[in-house]
Design a protein around this nucleic acid. Structure first.
Length: 280
DNA sequence: ACGCCCGCCTGTAAGC
DNA sequence: TGCTTACAGGCGGGCG
């Protein structure tokens, strides 16, 4: 579910909420969310008593720096994961709450995930790049890493892939998923199936700008919550960027630029939306 | 390389 | 009113 703008929104709030807090206790329910550890006890043991030093993001991963042994708590929300900050342990427990972290002062952080594609694990900072290949192989960060558009053009030209799947390839660029790839391609005026090595210099610039500006705007609006409102921030509030969507989830509606009807199609098995006039 | 298909899960909506 | 099917913000693996 959550892509870079949603994860970054959560990261910023989490930073304000949990840095310098100390973990008092941890509960794990079910077997799916904590699955890389030999046992739940090992995971819990590496968290209890630790103080949170930092909250970082790498692509769609959240990295919680801990004060002991340079350990990091890694969290990925998958399709349906939510982090909820609650002030009191007495607050009713939502269905599908799989991990509960209680701090010594003030409340809990709860991980709720109906589809259980998300996960949490603790690893050594040094091992992030060795023991966790998904993290090690992540591409550049489209918001944090400054890159010239000429370098971006070189990266595109090195590949021969359709633009949409390439934007969604976490090894190429980290953090973009199904919603934002469509929005970025509309912003750039490019069609999903353009080969990455077919772009003119001007098209490369448009794609780079479209990527940076779309994601930055989405962060300002605290991410996108679709009709099911599955994406909620740390405090249970919905995002606001869906109102700015140009194509995603707008099948049959008029293009905001040219009034032509937005169409829906499948690209790599995923629902995709585009304007056939504005994107070529 | 790249594109496609599957599996991993639960919940909801649409179709019959 | 069922029951069945399709689909949902992700990702890894296998196959051709």
């Amino acid at each position: 579910m959550p892509e870079l703008p949603e994860v970054e929104t959560i990261r910023r709030d989490l930073e304000k909420e949990i840095v310098s807090k100390r973990v008092k206790s941890v509960e794990v329910h079910g077997t799916r969310s904590v699955r890389r550890h030999g046992s739940d006890e090992e995971f819990i043991g590496r968290l209890e008593g630790r103080k949170v030093l930092s909250v970082k993001r790498s692509g769609k991963y959240l990295l919680i720096g801990l004060d002991a042994d340079q350990d990091v708590l890694v969290m990925h929300l998958g399709m349906s994961g939510q982090l909820l900050r609650v002030k009191s342990p007495k607050e009713p427990m939502a269905k599908h709450t799989h991990v509960v972290i209680t701090f010594t002062q003030a409340g809990q952080l709860r991980f709720v995930d109906p589809r259980t594609f998300g996960e949490l694990f603790v690893t050594r900072q040094d091992d992030l790049e060795k023991a966790v290949p998904e993290l090690a192989h992540l591409g550049f960060d489209p918001v944090d890493d400054v890159m010239s558009w000429t370098r971006f053009g070189a990266l595109l030209a090195n590949r021969h892939a359709q633009l949409k799947p390439l934007l969604m390839d976490q090894r190429f660029v980290a953090g973009i998923g199904n919603i934002y790839s469509d929005e970025i391609l509309f912003a750039a005026g490019l069609k999903y199936d353009r080969p990455s090595d077919s772009l003119s210099a001007q098209e490369v610039r448009r794609l780079y700008r479209g990527m940076v500006e779309t994601l930055s705007e989405a962060i300002k609006h605290r991410g996108s919550s679709l009709a099911d409102e599955q994406y909620r921030d740390l405090f249970g509030e919905v995002g606001d960027y869906q109102g700015q969507h140009q194509v995603y989830d707008r099948e049959g509606l008029a293009c905001r630029r040219c009034r032509h009807e937005i169409v829906r199609l499948k690209v790599g098995g995923r629902s995709s939306f585009m304007c056939e006039v504005c994107q070529v």
